[in-house]
Write a protein that binds this DNA or RNA. Structure first.
Lengths: 161, 161
DNA sequence: GTCGTTGCAAAGCATTTGCAAGACT
DNA sequence: AGTCTTGCAAATGCTTTGCAACGAC
């Protein structure tokens, strides 16, 4: 689905709920779908403040993000540190996340076999699965390398002493 | 490991950090390990207020829970709604969680094959796994049944009308 | 006009922190 | 005496909300 189509879907969604497509909502929508990284509400507030365009208040950013999540145009997930993080659903099939403890970067991955095992576990417990959320915490390739070489330097310094 | 042993380990941990086992810390520790359910900091604050024993302030509850997590006597996880939830590690091997959207109950489960697949996914991406956190959201057996029968009543009412 | 919208400021929550008073060794 | 602790209240940081002014049909 391309961005224009999603935009149409968003307009339809608003109409269905008798809500209006205002310039603020349009700006938030466009900016959100322009980004393929994950972002927090506060980041989006900052973007709205720094970039040119019609003024958008913090309240409106939060309210509109709420709408976008309700309408299933975006998902929110908590990456672990106090604030929610948003991602849009633009040809992003379901996936899970690897959160880098070094740089905060979020990578996505997917494994059908994991999902199957989850379902199996639920069946065994009589649990009716609605959604799930798998977060792997660790260090991305880059940060992992950096840390490894830091450890090496540290070791060298210690033994030389 | 029994509760007395863990208590000893906690004392050793405090000593190592030149911290003291005060009556507040003891009370928090005991109460936390008495509970085999998951609880939030605010719940623990309420327990401290309602149950008999030396007065313990909210600040101390938060500070002590922090200590217990650092010392790996407890784990904290966010069950999804704004506040962290704590569980102790008393013969609880690693496990994942099923969070009931109806009653909030948290069930635990474990599957080695899921863990293996996670590791495999990380290797593929050069991601150095440190920890993970898998939450299944849905309805526990009880709530699921309740919902099913509610739906049935609803349907009956609608068709009769 | 009538709704729905916005911005603002205030409120809400969970959690953290500065600080002076208190406790234990 | 010297630390480490505690309670309190204030501060934080994210998010929500009440409300009056505003805008589109």
């Amino acid at each position: 689905m391309k961005q224009t189509e999603i935009r149409t879907a968003f307009e339809a969604f608003l109409k269905r709920r008798s809500l209006k497509l205002t310039s603020q909502r349009r700006r938030i929508f466009d900016r959100a779908f322009d980004t393929h990284e994950h972002f927090s509400a506060e980041e989006l507030v900052r973007w709205m403040a720094d970039e040119p365009g019609p003024r958008v208040s913090r309240a409106t950013v939060y309210r509109t993000l709420g709408l976008l999540v309700e309408g299933e145009f975006m998902r929110s997930l908590d990456a672990g540190r106090g604030e929610l993080v948003y991602e849009h659903i633009l040809g992003h099939r379901h996936h899970d996340h690897m959160v880098c403890l070094g740089c905060g970067k979020i990578e996505e991955f997917h494994d059908d076999r994991i999902e199957e095992l989850q379902l199996a576990a639920c069946e065994k417990k009589g649990f009716e699965l609605v959604d799930h959320d798998l977060r792997l915490l660790g260090y991305c390739r880059n940060c992992s390398k950096t840390r490894a070489s830091e450890r090496k330097n540290e070791a060298a310094r210690t033994t030389t002493r």
